[in-house]
Design a binder for these strands. Structure first.
Length: 568
RNA sequence: GCGCCUGUAGCUCAAUUGGAUAGAGCAACGGACUUCUAAUCCGUAGGUUGAGGGUUCGAGUCCCCCCAGGCGUACCA
């Protein structure tokens, strides 16, 4: 039994026994301590009871522990400390057994089931298909991708989705921009749209289309021509966006098209539903949605006075569609420029009769790109843009992903390109990868050089349920006694909790933090203790320890989408 | 004006979501390779958590009011 569950059970029973007049007001919480001096686990139970019982926390703690004994295979000792914390020290025996658990779980180590199979969707990036992806998209791509990995690991059924805005004004502008460049290439005068896309990539697209299709489009009238060019350009851009994302390790389950919703008149269902509920009205020739009834600061237009659907109207239909497909929880990752949009979208979700928890927006703060200490102003329309691809070329997939994960999503990220390049040598990602590579090297060394441990190696290297029981007979884990060894185990067994906490808080930066710390603990162990020595028994025990560590690093790096090199 | 985000060591960021003496990495300085990789380890130094008040056993974290910066505030997408 896991120590945390064990303690909860014992303490809950103890509370019942003491029969204090606190009903169910107090729940037993067990948390990991911050400092080894305070033991491994602790509870603030006595402090929470203090005000209810009108006694000092330490007195209460005394009463709780009085006459209470713990399984010495799990808890070595307890103490009351500080303001009234009850601290628990895990027994070495318990920790050593956890190695077996990790080896047994292998690639499954870290898995839990707090999600209970709930269908969940994360929609992210969803950039307009009118140009290459920029670095902000790269940040969102990393966060979304890793969060889906984590959700799936803690028991949700999570999917990645990309919403393609392939209808509306932006696409029309793209067509006009490409059309103008296309004509210019053929020496035909054609004004460039004022709000068009000035980027060099538009010229490239026009050239590509000219090579591929010839000048056939000059035969068409302007409108038809631009429409056709828009479609062709859009598909090309989409394809390259998809390639970029896949090169970055992000694979979507669904690329959902706005045009599909419009073709199916999906918004009609919403309009009808809102009308039935008396949630719409006409004013100034437009159709309004009473979003202010659901917490929005004002009502919003669904159909303009020119009879056009607003983006919002289609977006409501899109979100309804998500729930119609069976998703119970939907996360949208948006840029900070969209936070004004949250209230109305939430209002729409509530108006559709869905529970508040069904919809969650996470704002991912901007990325400020710096070059020579100067902020690069980026604008898609002006064609000034630093592409995701450029960044990846410069710093690499591993470093870029790790870097984007390191910061809280609510904090803006300053990314100095020169610095990132220069620092790539001592980027924290290498620190973590190096720990993994070192372990692989130890195992490799043991394979080649160690004597009398050969029978163990296949078991350690490729662990399966069956081989673990064999392993037990051959290894004396009691030999693992050094503080650095036990410290390593303590940190490894935190991994599943770490993932749960990230899934609950949507704060993936905790993962990089966890692994930077774990790598530190491992490097320290490595520095103080040699694994492969003449002491065959000790060598075997330590090989098990580092094999377990390798599993944790490999699993974590896989979730982050960062490679786990065998050598560096 | 209103809304959201941010403000912590010289720099970039953490802080188990209200816990114990606010911690890491860079940068600076001093040590450690005859060893399974020194892309590592050990040590030194660095703080009125933007300011003030409140809530309680306990506040970087929650509430109020200021200060500074960023973004938003469409019948655009």
């Amino acid at each position: 039994m896991k120590a945390v569950e064990y303690l909860k059970q014992v303490l809950t029973e103890r509370l019942k026994q003491l029969d204090w007049p606190v009903d169910d007001q107090v729940e037993v919480e067990i948390e990991k301590t911050r400092d080894a001096r305070f033991g491994d686990l602790a509870t603030n139970l006595a402090m929470n009871l203090a005000s209810l019982l009108k006694q000092s926390p330490r007195q209460i703690a005394d009463q709780i522990l009085a006459g209470l004994s713990f399984d010495s295979n799990i808890i070595e000792r307890t103490e009351i400390a500080g303001a009234g914390f009850i601290n628990f020290f895990l027994s070495p025996e318990y920790l050593r057994n956890e190695i077996i658990e990790i080896l047994q779980a292998g690639t499954e180590f870290g898995r839990s089931n707090i999600g209970k199979g709930k269908k969940l969707q994360v929609e992210f990036v969803s950039a307009n298909p009118t140009g290459p992806l920029n670095v902000v998209s790269a940040r969102a791509a990393t966060i979304g991708d890793v969060m889906v990995n984590i959700f799936n690991t803690v028991g949700f059924d999570a999917k990645r989705e990309y919403y393609v805005n392939d209808a509306g004004r932006q696409v029309q502008l793209l067509g006009e921009s490409v059309g103008s460049r296309y004509c210019q290439l053929l020496g035909i005068e054609e004004p460039f749209p004022e709000e068009g896309y000035y980027g060099e990539y538009v010229v490239e697209l026009a050239k590509e289309i000219l090579n591929q299709y010839g000048k056939q489009f000059t035969q068409l009238d302007r409108g038809t021509r631009n429409q056709k060019l828009a479609t062709i350009a859009l598909e090309k851009i989409l394809r390259s966006q998809k390639e970029q994302l896949e090169q970055f390790g992000v694979y979507y389950d669904v690329w959902f098209r706005e045009s599909e919703l419009r073709r199916n008149k999906a918004e009609q269902q919403v309009l009808r539903y809102f009308a039935e509920k008396n949630l719409t009205y006409e004013k100034d020739g437009a159709l309004w949605f009473k979003s202010s009834q659901f917490g929005d600061e004002k009502d919003r237009v669904l159909i303009t006075k020119h009879g056009e659907l607003t983006y919002f109207a289609v977006d409501i239909a899109y979100h309804k569609n998500k729930y119609d497909r069976g998703f119970e929880i939907v996360y949208d990752l948006w840029g900070p420029d969209h936070h004004g949009y949250i209230a109305r979208m939430r209002a729409a979700i509530l108006a559709l009769g869905l529970p508040r928890e069904a919809f969650e927006v996470k704002i991912i703060q901007q990325v400020n790109l710096l070059r020579d200490g100067e902020v690069i102003k980026m604008s898609k329309r002006a064609g000034q843009i630093v592409e995701m691809a450029e960044l990846i070329d410069e710093v690499g997939v591993d470093a870029a992903r790790f870097f984007f994960l390191m910061r809280r999503i609510s904090a803006p990220l300053d990314f100095d390109i020169e610095l990132a390049k220069k620092q790539s040598e001592d980027n924290p990602v290498y620190y973590v990868q190096y720990a993994h590579a070192r372990i692989c090297n130890i195992l490799k060394f043991a394979t080649q050089r160690a004597t009398n441990v050969e029978d163990l190696l296949p078991v350690v290297e490729q662990v399966s349920q069956k081989s673990v029981s064999k392993l037990l007979n051959r290894v004396n884990l009691k030999l693992l006694q050094a503080p650095e060894e036990l410290e390593l185990i303590k940190n490894m067994i935190e991994y599943p909790n770490c993932l749960i906490q990230i899934a609950r808080s949507f704060e993936p930066h905790l993962l990089t933090q966890y692994f930077q710390n774990l790598a530190g603990v491992f490097h320290k162990f490595y520095h103080n203790h040699r694994v492969v020595t003449d002491d065959v028994e000790l060598t075997k025990a330590r090989l098990c320890l580092v094999a377990a560590a390798r599993i944790v690093f490999a699993n974590g790096l896989r979730i982050m989408g960062v490679s786990a090199p065998k050598e560096m």
